[in-house]
Design a protein around this nucleic acid. Structure first.
Lengths: 210, 210
DNA sequence: TAGATTGTTAATCGATTAACAATC
DNA sequence: TAGATTGTTAATCGATTAACAATC
């Protein structure tokens, strides 16, 4: 992968901050202001932008409107992104019902689960057996999938997704998935994130200063 | 913060891999083998261990048992970690019901939500109003909290947690929380993780090679 | 002993930041 | 014009890796 994951995360955060600024009626912004809002240095902001050929005005900062357009395009916000979810247990169902995606133009269009008791519909969203994935994905030209199944099912589900034509996966199973290089995989390891917090809390309480 | 977040994440992963190895009946392991399982270099593994004073045998690798004990201690697995969840909507409820925490000795002991329709119990777990947090936290000596409330409520809930004595927070709200330096905050920005996948999928499909 | 693996040092790599010339 | 901010280069910082002496 050529570009860094972190710069894209920052773009997401810049975007969020800019939307807030815009709502406050602001029209332009300095690298300094944006940096502060996101918690990075102003050099970082300017570097990031220049790396993507985004330029401002030498003394007037950046036009929020134009800047947002550029970021939207980079992040693929210019069109609605359709996503499927595999595994409709606790996490899967929460994601399906999660209201934070819609305003970001991310739309979950179907769930998949082989447990018949979960098939049918969740809030108007069809929940289908895994068998139906390939057909559904190609028919609707889906590129992105979320894996929210238990450990043991994660790799086979991943294989099914890849075979169905999915190009990018957000994985919640605490497993390192094997997939061809051209498939993008991003892992969200919940226990690990929590363990991280626990470690640092323990570390700080043990040696109070240092 | 003195130590790096990434090394702790790797410790979590080493630990998981070692448990798998142990289940396979393995007794000792080489840095090479462990590295492969986690997807890092063997130098990384040895460096990480030596940084924490963990040593192996010059020709016999590492004893899995002893290694696990050390990692458990570092990660705070030597005792059960009690955690509270604030916000019992989609995400909060999913975390409460999530079965992946228990085997990791992470125990969610209460939920908090000011919506009376959510108060009561979820699967035997008490769901209380935020008012009750301070008392509950100090009585049960809780140090860790999860924030799974909508944007606008996140900062006040964070303040409540800090006031109640919480030392570490795992935050799911797409917001940068403000808290005193000694409070550890780890953010899980779900939209951002998905946006990352979307970006790289788009980037790869646009310029197929490079 | 010969061979293999650790532990650590030094080299490399990449990302962040400081600094400043260009310029509006 | 004087002042302020961008865009970029060079310096710094930190993390990863290569390499190898120590040693079991």
């Amino acid at each position: 992968m050529v570009v860094n994951k972190k710069i894209i995360s920052r773009f997401s955060q810049y975007r969020k901050a800019l939307i807030r600024f815009q709502e406050l009626g602001m029209v332009k912004v300095f690298s300094d202001t944006l940096a502060e809002a996101v918690g990075v240095t102003s050099a970082q902001v300017r570097k990031d932008f220049s790396l993507y050929g985004i330029s401002g005005n030498k003394r007037g900062g950046y036009q929020i409107n134009g800047l947002l357009d550029e970021l939207q395009a980079i992040l693929g916000k210019d069109k609605i992104q359709k996503v499927i979810v595999s595994g409709c247990g606790n996490i899967g169902r929460a994601l399906i019902r999660y209201t934070g995606f819609e305003p970001e133009r991310i739309q979950i269009v179907a769930g998949f689960d082989d447990d018949p008791s979960k098939q049918g519909r969740i809030d108007a969203l069809p929940i289908l057996p895994l068998d139906a994935m390939k057909d559904f994905v190609s028919r609707n030209r889906i590129q992105i999938g979320i894996i929210a199944v238990p450990d043991s099912a994660a790799q086979p589900v991943c294989d099914t997704m890849v075979a169905a034509g999915i190009r990018g996966i957000l994985n919640f199973a605490p497993i390192r998935l094997k997939a061809p290089d051209e498939v993008v995989i991003n892992n969200v390891y919940l226990q690990m994130e929590l363990e991280n917090v626990i470690y640092f809390v323990n570390a700080l309480t043990k040696k109070p200063r240092r």
